Computed example of a mutant assay.
Amino acid sequence: MAADDDLTVTMDTDTHRFEVKLGAETAFAEYRLKDDTITFPHTVVPDAFSGKGVGGRLVQAGLAYAKDNRLWVKPTCSFFHAYIAKRPELHDLVHPDMREGLKVP
């Protein structure tokens, strides 16, 4: 089994996914680029990654890419949305059309 430090996020531009591999398993966050926006529609984290923080790493990598490339973020994936909603310091990355939905009850 790989150590948590070996779980590296890579960006696969062919499949439009940020990925982490562990043996035969792959965790991923899909993305779509259009103009000045990156949309994150879907994230999958298999049970093999449980408790390793892989979902958070995928979100962090996606947001870092958006920030580095000055892209607006549309977190349509519920995991991305929840992650960002809990962190007000990230709200300025979110496309203005989607910010109101980030309010946490």
Rank of each mutant, 00 (worst) to 15 (best):
M1L: 05
L7S: 09
R99I: 05
D35W: 00
F40N: 11
Q60W: 04
K67Q: 15
G62T: 00
P75M: 02
F80V: 09
E100T: 08
R99Y: 10
G56F: 05
T8M: 02
F18E: 10
L63V: 06
I38N: 02
D36T: 01
F80R: 07
V59K: 09
G53I: 13
F18L: 07
L102I: 01
F49M: 14
V104S: 09
L63K: 07
F18R: 08
A3H: 09
T8L: 10
T39M: 08
Y65K: 07
A61M: 11
Y31F: 13
T37Q: 00
V54L: 07
S50D: 15
R70T: 11
E100P: 07
P46T: 05
H95S: 13
R70N: 14
F80N: 14
E19A: 12
A82R: 09
E19G: 03
G101T: 01
E25H: 09
L33Y: 00
K52R: 15
D68M: 09
L71H: 01
R32M: 02
S50G: 15
D92T: 06
T10Q: 15
D92P: 02
T15V: 12
E89I: 02
T37C: 01
V54I: 10
G101N: 06
A3Q: 11
F40M: 11
D36P: 00
N69I: 03
D68Y: 06
M98H: 14
F28E: 10
A2G: 08
A66L: 06
T13M: 07
L33E: 01
D5K: 11
D5A: 10
L93C: 03
Q60I: 02
G56L: 03
V59W: 10
F40H: 10
K52C: 13
V104C: 09
P75T: 00
Y83D: 12
S50P: 04
P46Q: 04
A3V: 02
L22N: 11
H95K: 06
G56K: 01
I84M: 13
S78A: 15
D5P: 02
C77V: 02
Q60M: 10
F40Y: 15
G53R: 12
D6K: 04
V45M: 15
V54A: 12
G55V: 03
L102Y: 04
V45Q: 15
R32G: 02
F18P: 14
D68G: 11
R17A: 12
G62Y: 04
V44W: 02
L63A: 10
P96N: 07
R87W: 12
K21I: 03
A85C: 06
L7G: 07
A3C: 00
G56R: 07
Q60K: 14
T37M: 00
L33H: 01
R32Q: 08
G101C: 01
P88H: 00
L22R: 12
D36W: 00
V44S: 04
A29R: 06
P88A: 04
P88N: 01
L33A: 03
T26E: 12
D68E: 15
T10L: 13
H91R: 01
E19V: 11
Y65A: 08
D35S: 05
Q60P: 05
D5F: 09
E25R: 05
F80A: 13
F79P: 03
K103G: 10
D97P: 04
L102G: 05
E25Y: 04
D6E: 12
M11I: 11
H91E: 08
E100F: 10
N69S: 03
M98L: 14
L71K: 05
V9A: 06
T37V: 01
F40D: 08
A48W: 10
R17N: 11
